[in-house]
Design a protein around this nucleic acid. Structure first.
Length: 727
DNA sequence: ATGGACAATGTTTTT
DNA sequence: CATTGTCCAT
């Protein structure tokens, strides 16, 4: 069978590479996913490797599913036994199998970020640490970093008082997780890595099983991931990794692109294969991308080329503020669609932070155009979803106190702080978990436990315990969906959530959506369902052939491509983000992030920056992104940033777009004394004619942003500049 | 015990 | 401004 047809010679070389360690360095759009897929098919179909002996690690669950399907299509046989998925999913699966060597049981739950933060908070409270001084998020961040670096609580290095605090919290937090029979995201990697590190027989078993290991997006692995890969590949040493250091954008999550260098050191005789040709973008887009990324020092220079032709120039567009930005983007999309030059599904709008999506959403809504938002207010983060999931989680793992806490009063059943405390005290006294105590009380209403409570408390607690016990009893012969329906019915959830308001209605709709998802697990049971829910990523929700524009963060855009891409908010402070300014390493990562965004575009790219941006409710002047200065002018259409003498540096062709929609109602009171208003045309003695973009009162003077036809953007002080208004 | 009203406080990116 | 936490009235 032919596994390399339609591939270029580099790609063919990559697919048919000899066994042993292989490092494929692949630029954006060079077909690396395809190479990885064909490699898997080649190993199974041509080299006779059993799929049972093969592991493929992908970046998203979606990528894993796609790869599985494509492999099946290529070799026309079942891939049962094939280990494929994200690091986290694969680790979870293996850990459940190996719990005899681990301090938790196989029905462990995976705590999501909310759960993790609440656990940190209880740790802080329990240890009498001030939450104001030590922010839960930040303490959690430190702990997470430690875990990614395989540092255990007792090894946490102390160089400051804060470190000491973190260490104590880390220790306590880890204890709480185990009490709950729970793992956080980092634990999945940490426990897996340390199991392989410490238990020789387990390591050998898996290392022997996995004859071939393939890893996508290798530049985004952290030390924990690297270590477990190393152990898994320790027997056969057939490890095949694909990556691009220029697309490393998860440093803050512990990812270390230097793993690429470490790889060549740890696996002597690594074959290095470069995939250079780009099949996605036009040459102009690639040139723009290179002009941005080439400013990063210490890179192995990489050429990006395509035979797709030059293509049209990249549009650089300036807008007055972030609201105008959203309008500009939506208008442009609408007009391209109206003129039949593009389909709605061709577009993606990308931004640095999730917060930026709001104005865009409003603009889409305002224009009555449909769109698809990736991430942000995640489906699984919604209250009603978390409620039901918590019920299921508790039934699956009654030790999960966090879930218990959440649902014991949802809906309210007369169990408040006092009763709850009594329950916990009693539980602690007899050395059993609150959840199990409840269940016991439910099963045995006359038990001695009841005497430990007031009559009322005993009644409400055992009636709730009765519910739990009933659900647990039906677990064995019911599907996840069956369980869900029963719970919803038993607790009368619909009237509770669907309160007649629009919001209540939409909450109920969400529950119906969750039912649909549960239906896919009819034959697989509750555990896989819960696990899937815990480990889905935003990117997994992106449908392939969307019929509407997609809104997503630059991070979420990795690995995707769109015919027409807008990158919004190209301002200093947003991209690069202000929190990256001091750290050169982080600035480099911001640059890579822009690089990733640019290289998502196949045909047309719009770069948009604005002159003002609302930070805290109020609009503030901001600078264009410093990265824009690195793009050669001849690749750009639209505004020019540098004040050049020549006149093409001109106002974009639709000045009316710049006019501030004369604000209905709530503008800051400053307008009272502003002489210059956005949209006014003015002249200046040296800079000639221009248009007012913004004006701000500063003490008694007025600072005016003017875009001059000849001179470009200037900030002028009204009293000194001698601006004349053209009627 | 519960839920509503106000105040304080905080903005990267995510498995 | 938008979320989250705390206080207070029911």
């Amino acid at each position: 069978m032919d596994f390399v047809s339609g591939l270029n010679s580099q790609q063919q070389q990559a697919v048919k590479a000899d066994f042993g360690p292989v490092l494929v360095m692949a630029g954006p759009g060079s077909g690396k996913t395809r190479v990885l897929t064909q490699r898997v098919a080649y190993l199974i179909g041509a080299m006779g490797v059993s799929s049972y002996n093969l592991m493929a690690v992908t970046f998203t669950n979606k990528a894993a599913n796609e790869m599985k399907e494509r492999v099946i299509r290529l070799i026309g046989e079942d891939t049962r036994g094939l280990t494929i998925g994200t690091f986290h999913a694969i680790c979870a699966r293996i850990l459940r199998r190996e719990t005899e060597h681990l301090p938790f049981t196989s029905n462990f739950v995976i705590f999501d970020s909310d759960d993790q933060i609440s656990l940190i908070k209880s740790s802080l409270r329990e240890l009498n640490i001030d939450e104001k001084r030590y922010r839960p998020q930040s303490v959690h961040g430190s702990i997470s970093n430690a875990k990614n670096e395989l540092i255990m609580p007792d090894e946490y290095p102390i160089n400051s008082y804060r470190d000491e605090v973190v260490r104590r919290v880390y220790h306590y937090y880890q204890g709480l997780l185990l009490n709950n029979n729970a793992l956080d995201f980092d634990d999945l990697l940490l426990w897996m890595a340390s199991l392989l590190e410490e238990n020789l027989s387990v390591r050998e078993r898996y290392a022997r099983r996995y004859e071939h290991i393939l890893v996508d997006e290798f530049q985004d692995t952290n030390l924990a991931q690297y270590t477990l890969l190393k152990h898994l590949a320790s027997f056969h040493k057939n490890i095949y990794v694909v990556g691009d250091t220029d697309q490393s954008i998860y440093r803050w999550r512990g990812a270390d692109y230097r793993n690429v260098l470490r790889f060549e050191r740890d696996f002597p005789g690594t074959q290095l294969i470069l995939l250079e040709q780009n099949y996605r973008s036009t040459q102009v887009i690639l040139d723009v991308a290179m002009s941005v990324i080439n400013r990063n020092p210490q890179r192995t220079p990489k050429r990006l080329f395509t035979d797709r032709g030059k293509g049209q120039k990249v549009n650089l567009h300036v807008v007055l503020d972030d609201r105008t930005e959203a309008e500009y983007i939506i208008n442009t999309i609408a007009s391209l669609v109206a003129r039949g030059q593009a389909q709605p599904g061709d577009f993606a709008v990308m931004y640095r932070t999730n917060a930026q999506s709001r104005l865009l959403e409003e603009a889409f809504l305002g224009a009555g155009l449909p769109y698809k938002l990736v991430g942000a207010q995640r489906f699984y983060g919604r209250r009603e979803i978390k409620d039901i999931i918590s019920y299921l989680r508790l039934i699956h793992n009654p030790v999960d106190e966090l879930s218990l806490l959440r649902i014991i009063s949802t809906p309210a059943r007369g169990i408040g702080d006092k009763t709850l405390n009594a329950l916990r005290t009693r539980a602690q006294k007899i050395g059993v978990e609150p959840g199990n105590l409840l269940i016991e009380m439910g099963r045995n209403p006359e038990s001695a436990h009841n005497k430990a409570f007031t009559k009322r408390a005993a009644a409400v607690l055992s009636s709730f315990g009765r519910l739990l016990a009933n659900w647990i009893d039906m677990l064995e012969n019911h599907t996840p969906l069956g369980m869900m329906d029963r719970i919803i019915d038993d607790i009368n959830y619909q009237p509770y959530i669907d309160d007649g308001t629009d919001e209540g209605h939409s909450r109920w709709e969400n529950i119906m959506e969750l039912r649909r998802l549960a239906a896919d697990f009819q034959d697989r049971g509750l555990e896989p369902f819960l696990e899937q829910i815990a480990l889905v990523s935003d990117q997994d929700t992106i449908e392939a052939g969307a019929k509407v524009p997609t809104l997503l963060t630059l991070h979420a855009a990795k690995g995707l491509e769109f015919p027409i891409v807008f990158i919004a908010g190209l301002n200093d402070g947003v991209l690069p983000h202000s929190r990256s300014f001091e750290d050169p390493e982080e600035m480099m990562e911001e640059r890579r992030l822009l690089y990733v965004g640019i290289t998502r575009a196949k045909d047309i790219l719009y770069l948009v920056f604005s002159l003002n941006r609302s930070a805290f409710g109020y609009s503030e002047p901001v600078d264009p992104s410093r990265f824009l200065r690195d793009i050669p002018e001849d690749l750009l259409d639209g505004v020019l940033l540098k004040k050049k003498r020549d006149h093409q540096a001109s106002i974009p062709s639709h000045p009316e777009r710049w006019r501030v929609p004369q604000s209905e109602g709530s503008t800051p009171p400053k307008t009272k004394d502003n002489r210059y208003k956005p949209g006014m045309r003015v002249t200046h003695s040296t800079w000639g004619e221009g248009m007012v973009l913004n004006s701000k009162l500063d003490d008694s003077d007025e600072i005016v942003d003017v875009f001059f036809k000849e001179a470009g953007l200037k900030k002028v002080v009204a009293s000194l500049a001698g601006l004349e208004i053209i009627p």
